[in-house]
Design a protein around this nucleic acid. Structure first.
Lengths: 179, 179
DNA sequence: CTTTGCATGTAAACCGTTACATGATTTT
DNA sequence: AAAATCATGTAACGGTTTACATGCAAAG
């Protein structure tokens, strides 16, 4: 079985990211919103995958700076395909402290509740802005990354709309209080 | 600063869940979809919170079976409110292996891609069924838990719709291939 | 009398982030 | 000359899940 980070690495190598650094670069602008990877996971896992014969590394220093480039082995390509075709939906985790605050917000004043909604919305807006910024470039490439990007755009827009709706309800509740 | 589990506990105590077991019960049917807690976190954290004076525990055995019931102290109520009013959106994590598969799916046949979408959708449908089942009971209570439940319903329905749309696109792509 | 539910807890393993360390190269 | 970028790695820490251990009480 592949570890979560191994899946990212094998996929990234097939996409042409040959060094750990390049993989991290792409993760940070693309998969980051539904799948992260830090250097602390990446480099040890690269070594493990090489030991297991799923990737092959070679010295690729262009100058005095050391650099290791990796390529998929046949076994690695098989492992990647096997995972992609596996009958297992895999990890799905959604953890949202904003939701937890809403769950427990019953004692709070309307203005405090509004603030909770605004903070949550602010974060979705930040992500949305980033996704919108890279949209033109990713659209040109198309394929899986573009499908995923459109998912992200749709999801965060939906969340923003939903939070706005909840905020509108808050106003209606207050009017009822005043009346 | 409160640990994530501490936030759940303080909130649950205010909602009237007095024992670790009761808290876990409610977490499992309600917050589970955006915030989990296992016994391995719950019981040690209960002890820590009691040591810190945020909750007070008392023996509450109704018979031979041991049972510790907790209540919020004034300091605990303050800490809970402080967290709820904090200018920090807190943890937001979304990890989805289905999305990762889509990101890397470009080498796959249309049928393999369809399967990936179906598996993801299946999971959302499972969650949706559970949320729909508890909806009537939660609606009666209203408040934060009901707002959160409606969020969950909306989010998972949206995800299902989105995955269906992607699947329809797949069919259009294949027709184009055949034509 | 056996299974399910109530109830509390611990230990090990796993996963992941953060901070740190190092040093070369390119850009300003 | 300084700052940013390329590039690789480790150590410490923290949070979470899983599996295990224990035992009483109620229901079938």
């Amino acid at each position: 079985m592949l570890t979560p980070t191994a899946k990212v690495i094998l996929g990234m190598v097939r996409l042409g990211r040959r060094t750990g650094y390049e993989m991290k670069q792409l993760v940070d602008v693309s998969t980051r919103f539904f799948w992260t990877a830090s250097y602390g996971q990446l480099y040890p896992e690269l070594r493990r995958l090489e030991d297991d014969g799923l990737i092959a590394g070679e010295e690729a220093s262009t100058s005095g700076r050391r650099r290791r480039a990796f390529a998929l082995t046949d076994a690695g390509a098989d492992a990647l395909d096997e995972w992609l075709r596996s009958e297992d939906a895999g990890v799905y985790e959604y953890r949202d402290e904003g939701m937890l605050k809403i769950f427990f917000w019953d004692g709070l004043a309307v203005e405090d509740r509004r603030r909770i909604l605004q903070l949550s919305r602010g974060r979705h807006e930040e992500v949305l802005r980033h996704l919108e910024a890279i949209e033109p470039a990713v659209r040109r490439r198309g394929g899986g990354p573009y499908a995923v990007l459109r998912s992200g755009l749709a999801l965060h827009r939906f969340s923003i709309d939903w939070l706005n709706e909840l905020e509108a309800e808050l106003d209606r509740d207050r009017e009822r209080e005043v009346t």
